[in-house]
Amino acid sequence: MSAFTPSRKNRRSLFWDRFATVCFYGLGAVIMLFIFWLLFTILSRGLPWITPQFLVKLPEEIDAGGGIGPMLFNSFYVLFLSLLISLPIGVGAGIYMAEYAPKNKFTEVLRICVESLASVPSIVFGLLGLAIFAEYFGIGLTILGGAVSLAFLNLPMLARVTEEAIRAVPNDLRNAAFALGTTKYQSIRTVVIPVAMNAIITGVCLVAGRAFGESAVILLTAGLSTSGAMWDFNLFSPGETLAVHLWYVQSEAIVEDARQIADMSAAVLVFIVLLINLVFRVPLWFNNRKVKR
């Protein structure tokens, strides 16, 4: 037998390696096909009939031809407010847990608590927001309550994603920065965070998409109605969002074109979530270009 002839064991290993490769590629192809089919089905039913008037018009309760203007504005407004609250706190907490927190039982318990909160159903945060804003403070169902409750929902995931991204940065980079005479804060700001930025922005992207399409939290804290104005920046106004409106139109609306409005609303919702992912990818592209240079 030639020295280059594979043994029986090696042939079996080679067979299973190729078999596993084919299976994983096939599984990935099936998942991609399912995602494309799902997106095509939702977008094809709604996008061809969407008009600029539909995006800015007020909704109708009885007559056909209503729009989604206030709900679309509330969706972006609540998303902006929730990120404004959750980003500094969540990213800061992740940096603290990865770089400054001492390694003891308290921080381990704290980390377990954060991981547990990240997996809590969103309706629990909605009930918490309802208890705090509607019952304790007595301000009712408002945009402020919805935004803060969404921030509560996003904080655990942001903190965990940031912590894991910071921990994934090699220690050699930190040591090199310290060797150049930088302080700990300077090394984090100029070395660690730029290297971990891709993973952090990916986490922010996931959080933003989840917040934009969230309905349970908004339904319990911001309500099922709007003030009736297209551009209402009042934090104490009711804040029905597009996701909540989609649920309402699909389940309880009595207008004759409710099904068409639901299809168009679903298409707008999916399209904007895809657009949010694309917008958050732009900083990643610029960051990758800087790293390559």
Rank of each mutant, 00 (worst) to 15 (best):
K105T: 13
V91S: 08
L87Y: 13
S119K: 05
G126A: 02
A118D: 09
E115V: 03
S122A: 13
Y77M: 01
L83Q: 13
F73A: 03
I112K: 15
V114Y: 07
R111P: 00
P88I: 08
V109N: 12
S82E: 01
N74Y: 03
T107A: 11
E99P: 12
Y96N: 05
S116T: 14
F73E: 03
F76M: 07
F80H: 03
V120Y: 00
V120C: 02
I85R: 06
V91R: 10
L87D: 09
V124H: 02
L110I: 06
N104H: 07
I85D: 05
V120S: 02
V78Q: 05
G92L: 09
C113Y: 13
L84N: 09
K105I: 14
A98Y: 12
F80Y: 03
R111G: 14
S119R: 09
E99K: 14
L83I: 05
G94A: 02
L72T: 04
A101Q: 10
F73G: 00
N104L: 07
V114W: 05
F80M: 07
I89Y: 08
E108S: 14
N104K: 09
V78N: 03
F76Y: 05
S119G: 13
F73M: 03
I89C: 09
K103T: 12
L79W: 01
Y96T: 10
A93C: 11
I95R: 08
K103V: 13
Y77C: 02
F106L: 15
T107L: 10
M97T: 06
L117D: 05
A101I: 07
T107Y: 11
P102W: 12
F106S: 05
C113R: 09
P102F: 12
A98I: 04
E108K: 15
K105A: 12
M97D: 05
R111I: 03
P121L: 08
L81R: 04
A118W: 12
V114M: 08
V120N: 01
G126N: 06
V91F: 04
F80N: 00
L87K: 10
T107G: 12
V124A: 02
L84M: 14
E99D: 14
T107R: 11
M97R: 10
M71Q: 10
I123P: 05
K105C: 08
Y96V: 08
L87F: 09
L81F: 09
V78P: 04
T107W: 13
L110N: 04
I112L: 14
N104M: 07
F125Y: 15
P88S: 06
L81P: 02
I95Y: 06
S75I: 00
I112F: 11
G92S: 06
F125I: 01
L110E: 03
A101Y: 07
V124L: 07
V109D: 06
G92H: 09
F76G: 07
F76A: 03
L87N: 08
L84Y: 06
S75P: 00
R111K: 14
I89P: 11
S122Q: 05
I123K: 01
V91E: 05
V124W: 01
S122I: 01
G94C: 08
I89V: 12
A101V: 13
S119L: 02
N74H: 02
S119D: 09
L110M: 10
I112W: 11
V120K: 02
S122V: 01
E115G: 14
P88L: 08
L79Q: 04
F125G: 00
E115S: 12
G126D: 06
Y77S: 01
S116Y: 15
I85V: 14
L87W: 08
V78C: 01
F125E: 03
L84G: 14
L117C: 11
A93D: 04
